[in-house]
Design a protein around this nucleic acid. Structure first.
Length: 423
RNA sequence: GGAGGAGUCGCAUAGUUGGUCUAGUGCGCCCGUCUUGAAAACGGGUACGCCGCAAGGUGUCGAGAGUUCGAAUCUCUCCUCCUCCGCCA
């Protein structure tokens, strides 16, 4: 959500931003509704002022017939007011719907483009492995080594169901511990285990609702299963006023991530590249309301995930997402994509975005600046570790005989084990 | 799941026969007086939003709806917390 005053004063910016994101949005329609809103508010408040004034007089009046006269007048005023309030309600509803649809303005550095094919590569790291044999995909490798069970996975959980098993489970545990220790060394991230069963407002606040509702699981009680710990972490401080001296607040969340993957039924149907549930570490940062600060921490959290990926020895590149590939609230986004030998291409393992005050305005997270003015903090988030790096490790570290070398940094968490091979 | 109690502007509280509550008080915090400095004492100030160029107006007492000329105060629904009972990992 953006500030209505800002929207009114920067209609052209909003318009250009929406175009860059390839989102249809009619600013003029919103402004027209807002004009109506203001009109009604002014009129209603004027009537209410009169009502308050008469009310005050009535308390001091002893004369009963004078009182009765006042009540008659106020009754009429009240009816007029109720009518206007009814209309204001309708206007407000329309206003809300439009306000929730206003896209945040993308940064100037965001490349133009329609979809992920237009994302611009900004960095590459590592050597793409050269195999002198035909590399196998993670499904074959993991099933052969008893690391993954898809048949029983679908039997138990349905389409896209899976079990990580044996060394598959152990390798995943090792990754989690490695990531925890990585951030422990950084020192300033608070580790948190967060709920993924969350209330509707949290998803509204983070911007996943109303636009992304069909990709969320919903319970019979009206709660939702979130697709990332970002939702709970962002909502953690909702409706609170933070101390400026506590900023930036850096959090490392760990949670289940649930995704319906509605609309991607045909995509990645084999294996565990795209699944309905997985565990994920997520970084969330709340900082002062300054573009420079946002940019600084955006680079920082992206760098953290790059460091993790490098430590794991996985070849990757970073892309700056183009306008059409940005979400409604995002100002800028980087995706980290790791090389997947079986597909002979890079696949996304995480994405880092910043929002300015788009999310915090919805969630009402504020602080007092040096002038004593209340301001909405800025928010950012980035994947620290999704479920995919496990797949990337398996494929990139495979040997001709189907065994898998364990990345050096993970070996301590695997009891010194260096390789996963058939017994 | 059942029974009962509670939710006030940082914190703690007052306010329940509806109308000077434009929400009082204490603590905390800020400014000032006094002081060599500090403390204490004393004086003043201290919620957030919306409309308005401004003066000013207006809203918010967990949320929403209702009764009324008028609701922090009455009614209903919901949310959250506490106590007890039941069930359970």
């Amino acid at each position: 959500m953006l500030d209505i005053k800002f929207i009114r004063e920067n209609k052209d910016l909003i318009d250009l931003g929406a175009k860059k994101k390839h989102i249809n949005f009619d600013v003029e329609a919103l402004v027209a509704i807002d004009d109506k809103r203001k009109e009604f508010i002014a009129s209603i408040e004027k009537k209410r002022a009169e009502q308050n004034m008469v009310s005050e007089r009535m308390v001091r009046t002893q004369d009963e017939s004078e009182k009765a006269q006042m009540i008659r007048e106020m009754k009429a005023l009240k009816e007029a007011m109720q009518q206007e309030e009814e209309e204001l309600k309708k206007v407000m509803h329309e206003w809300q719907v439009l306000m929730l649809a206003v896209p945040n303005i993308p940064d100037v550095s965001v490349p133009d483009g329609v979809d992920d094919k237009d994302n611009r590569e900004v960095k590459t790291w590592g050597d793409i492995p050269k195999f002198d044999f035909t590399p196998k995909d993670h499904i074959e490798l993991m099933q052969n080594l008893g690391m993954l069970d898809l048949e029983r996975g679908t039997k138990v959980a349905g389409f896209r169901g899976y079990f990580l098993k044996g060394d598959g489970a152990r390798l995943q545990f090792a990754l989690w511990q490695f990531v925890q220790d990585f951030f422990l060394k950084k020192g300033d991230f608070t580790p948190m285990i967060t709920p993924s069963l969350v209330r509707r407002e949290t998803l509204m606040g983070t911007g996943y609702i109303p636009q992304g509702e069909e990709d969320l699981y919903k319970t019979q009680d009206g709660d939702y299963l979130s697709g990332t710990a970002e939702v709970a972490l962002m909502s953690y401080y909702s409706d609170e006023v933070l101390d400026k001296k506590d900023l930036p607040i850096k959090m490392l969340g760990f949670s289940n991530a649930f995704r319906r993957e509605a609309g991607s039924h045909g995509k990645d149907t084999k294996g565990i590249l795209r699944v309905h549930e997985f565990f994920k570490f997520e970084q969330v940062v709340l900082c002062e309301a300054s573009h420079a600060e946002s940019v600084k921490y955006h680079e920082e959290i992206n760098n953290n995930t790059e460091e993790i990926t490098q430590a794991l020895g996985l070849p990757y590149h970073v892309v700056a997402n183009c306008g059409g590939d940005l979400g409604l609230g995002q100002v800028k986004k980087y995706d980290i994509e790791v090389w997947l030998p079986s597909e002979n291409t890079y696949r996304e393992t995480g994405s880092a975005s910043y929002f300015h005050d788009f999310q915090t305005r919805r969630l009402n997270i504020r602080y007092r600046d040096d002038e004593g003015k209340m301001r909405f903090v800025h928010s950012l988030n980035n994947t620290a570790l999704s479920g995919r790096p496990l797949i990337m490790i398996v494929e990139n570290y495979q040997n001709e005989d189907g065994s898998i070398r364990i990345p050096e940094v993970l070996q301590p968490y695997m009891g010194g084990q260096k390789i996963i091979a058939k017994q």
